[in-house]
Amino acid sequence: MHRFQLSQQMIVSVIFVLLFAGLSLLLPGFANTENLLTLLQNVAILGILGLGMAVIVIGRGVDLSMIASLAIPVALTLQLADAGHSTALAIIAGLALSALFGAANGWLIAYAEVPPLFVTLASGLFLAGLGQAFLFSTEAVVWPEPLQFLSAIGRGRLAGIPNSIWIFALVAVAVHAFLSRLTAGVFTYSMGDNPMAARLAGIPVRIMVIVQYVSSALIATLAGFVMAASVGSMSTRIYNSTWIYDVILVVVLGGIGLSGGRGSVTNVLIGTLLIGTLLNGLTILDVSFPVQNLIKGFVLLAAIMADTVLNPRNEETAQQGDI
């Protein structure tokens, strides 16, 4: 199985190289530095989200609410700072909302035992609805003056490389350390492999689920800060986009099986590069948004079909109602 995984990674890497080479040759505007930096910039946020999702998926879950935790806590921070509250309070409030949201997700999944897909679909809607109905009156919250000192996370460069890429690299190293160096990381793999066995072995499975969803919410919020800093504002309607499917695409295409227990940060990096290149190429080709969605849909479908074949569900440990 391990050899097979490696080969899937290889295939995706080869596809990426071919795609990149093809686009460089055929598209006039693709290979210039400006475009490649934009590509990397966009990819960085998607990649950060993918890293958060990877932790969840390896633990046999899925988090569809990541876009909500990307948008709403950040918008809350921006609005509070804009309204004259202290920046520390604004940031803490945003992070607290995010952590609380992740903990609520985790609690519903671990203790109330509602399937994760279902919980995160509804909770994402809830948080986005909360933001639209009660917190924000505008479509977008601008990056306010008091927070200028933080805007470096999304703008500017260090050693010629955009800062957002550095942040992506930092998160990648952190997630890698978590997964491969910490006991909690090992626990995450064993939970994904066989939750019942993990529980019988004495792993605090329920606590671990909450830890995972809190971490994915916080990672998404970090991605949100990077995005808001680079764009200069945070859209409160971003939840209505199909962005979350790009995140799933990154994870699944990279080779992290949805049945859990397999994959690593490397998979996310490869998936991110492939999707980033694909989307960037489509944008340059001036493909309309619905057609882009159509193409993404078919790629995702193919990826999930491949995932079903390569990582078949374990009938012994799959639960009834594991939809």
Partner: peptide, 30 residues
């Protein structure tokens, strides 16, 4: 066919067909 015969996961598969059908709708209505 995708869920019954190819045994894909119902939730994710119908999420994807949601996007695909919606994209088809948007292309046609345009």
């Amino acid at each position: 066919i995708l869920i019954g015969y190819l045994r894909l996961r119902a939730f994710l598969t119908t999420l994807i067909t949601l996007i695909i059908f919606r994209a088809v709708y948007e292309i046609w209505t345009a």
